[in-house]
Structure formats: structure tokens, C-alpha cells
């Protein structure tokens, strides 16, 4: 025994004992009985996302400015009564083809007023948003939500949800009537009062009512027929842009950078090979 200790060394012996102790604790834990895992019954009714093809998809995709304008029309007429797009400012709409006059029209009619101070009297007042102000929703609180559950900000929504744009599109077009089976088999899953059944929403029950109700809910200025599916696609495209306005630019520069790096790396491989060959 003493011989073994001598062979293995004192430090290693201490470590060995510590290691064995750790292993024993883990082993003990691994053999603890587990509570029977309940499979969340809601998961059975959750549906996989619908597929959505946007013009900006892929490495060479481009935003369709007309579609983004239509999307903003839907956002303004439908979403904006509850949601904001806080990370956008009114002047950013110029990027999807709105003129300065149009932007002024939009901001003057916007639902939110901005707290400010009258420069002459010093009194607090609520003014119209400037071009430089955020496109906020009615529940906007500059200090964050502070625990009040409100409609989430939409400007980053396609980045902030798993599934991205396809999730938004599926959710918008995914309202269904609750399957009869649910009431029979899982009464606890019954949609609560004031909520709505949507199999694309985690937990199946969403507080948002059906937003895109009927055809021609909005008037498209470019004459496109405003079917609910078209509106959902357009507003999703707009939200995808609002989350990643740099996308086109990023891809364009990226292709150039990768091409440059391929040439540079290729050249460095040749140089490296020539240098080592001389050994």
C-alpha cells in the first residue's frame, strides 16, 4: 500500500481521492429515481412553422421596396394600434421609399405623443413626433416594460423569435378554432377567456386577437389585392427589414470580402508552398 502511494505520488493521490469523491457524488445523483416526466400535452398540438419565401432570402436576395411599403401600410393600419417598432425612427422610412412629405404625414398622424417641454413657458407638454423620434406603440415606456405585460415591440421580432420571419407569418395566418379533442381530453388546455387558439404560439393560447381579419382590410396604394395571406407576407417582409435593415448591404460587401480573401488566401498558400519547398 505504502509502495503504491510512493509510486503514484502524494499530489496525484490527493487528486485521485478528490476525483473519486466527485465521481461518487455524480454516480449517486445519476442513480437517484426521477420524477415521472410529464409530456406537455400542448406540445402535441403545436404545429411546425409554415414555410415562407421572402425576396430578401438567400445570399443574393434583395428587399422588394414595394412590398416593404405595403408591409408598412399594414403595420400602420393594423399592428400599430397595439405594437411599436421602437428601434425604427420615422426618417428610416425613407429607406423603403417614403418621401419626406409622406413621412411628415405619417408622423403627424401617429398615435403616440412625445413628452417634451415648452421652450417658452417651461411647462411639460406632449408634442408630435419628429422625424428623428422612434416609431413607438401606444404602450411605449422608455424605461422598459417593468413587468407590465404589453404587446411586444416588433422592430426586432424576426430576430427575437426562433424561426424568424416564418414564425411571424405562421402566427399571423395560424389562428384556428380549438380542436374539439382538446376540450374532451385535456380540459386544462382549454383556451382561457380573452385568449385565442393558435397552434404556432408556444402554449397554444395567445392574447393577441386575429389581426388580419378580412380581404381589403387595408388599401394598397399600388393596387395589389390585399388578401389576408398577402397582407401577412407583406407585413412580415416589412418586419424582416426593420430587424435587419443592413441585410442587403451586408451581403453585398460580404461577397466582395470573401472573394478578396479567397484570392489572398490562395496566394498565401502558393507562397507558403514555395517557401517550404526550398528546404
Amino acid at each position: 500500500m505504502l509502495n503504491l502511494v510512493r509510486r503514484i505520488g502524494f499530489i496525484r493521490l490527493v487528486c485521485l481521492l478528490a476525483g473519486l469523491a466527485m465521481c461518487f457524488v455524480l454516480l449517486w445523483g445519476a442513480f437517484q429515481p426521477r420524477a415521472k416526466q410529464e409530456i406537455d400535452p400542448a406540445a402535441r398540438y403545436q404545429k411546425p412553422l409554415k414555410s415562407l419565401k421572402l425576396p430578401s432570402d438567400g445570399l443574393t436576395g434583395h428587399f422588394d421596396k414595394k412590398q416593404l411599403r405595403r408591409g408598412f401600410t399594414v403595420f400602420q393600419a393594423v399592428c400599430a394600434s397595439c405594437h411599436g417598432a421602437n428601434q425604427l425612427r420615422f426618417q428610416d422610412l425613407a429607406e423603403i421609399g417614403y418621401s419626406k412629405a409622406e413621412i411628415d404625414g405619417i408622423r403627424q398622424e401617429w398615435i403616440n405623443r412625445i413628452p417634451d417641454v415648452d421652450p417658452n413657458t417651461g411647462e411639460a407638454l406632449m408634442r408630435q413626433p419628429n422625424r428623428n423620434d422612434r416609431i413607438t406603440g401606444p404602450y411605449y415606456n422608455p424605461l422598459g416594460s417593468q413587468g407590465i405585460v404589453t404587446a411586444p415591440d416588433l422592430s426586432l421580432i424576426t430576430k427575437a423569435r426562433k424561426g424568424g420571419a416564418a414564425y411571424v407569418y405562421s402566427l399571423l395566418t395560424g389562428y384556428e378554432s380549438e380542436p374539439k379533442e382538446i376540450a374532451e381530453r385535456y380540459p386544462q388546455l382549454k383556451t382561457p377567456e380573452g385568449n385565442f387558439y393558435n397552434p404556432y404560439f408556444k402554449g397554444l393560447h395567445i392574447a393577441m386577437p386575429v389581426a388580419l381579419l378580412s380581404e381589403n382590410q387595408v388599401n394598397y396604394e399600388d393596387g395589389t389585392k390585399a388578401s389576408t395571406d398577402q397582407m401577412a407576407k407583406d407585413v412580415t417582409a416589412f418586419l424582416a427589414w426593420s430587424a435587419e435593415p443592413e441585410l442587403e448591404n451586408r451581403h453585398r460587401i460580404g461577397i466582395g470580402v470573401i472573394a478578396f480573401l479567397l484570392v489572398a488566401t490562395g496566394l498565401s498558400v502558393v507562397c507558403c508552398y514555395r517557401i517550404w519547398r526550398k528546404l
Binding site: G144, S145, P152, L156, K159, A160, K162
Partner: peptide
Amino acid sequence: PDNYIPAN
């Protein structure tokens, strides 16, 4: 994706 939601 959750990190694109402001801290709550």
C-alpha cells in the same frame, strides 16, 4: 433569439 428582447 431571446437576447434580441430587451432585459425584463
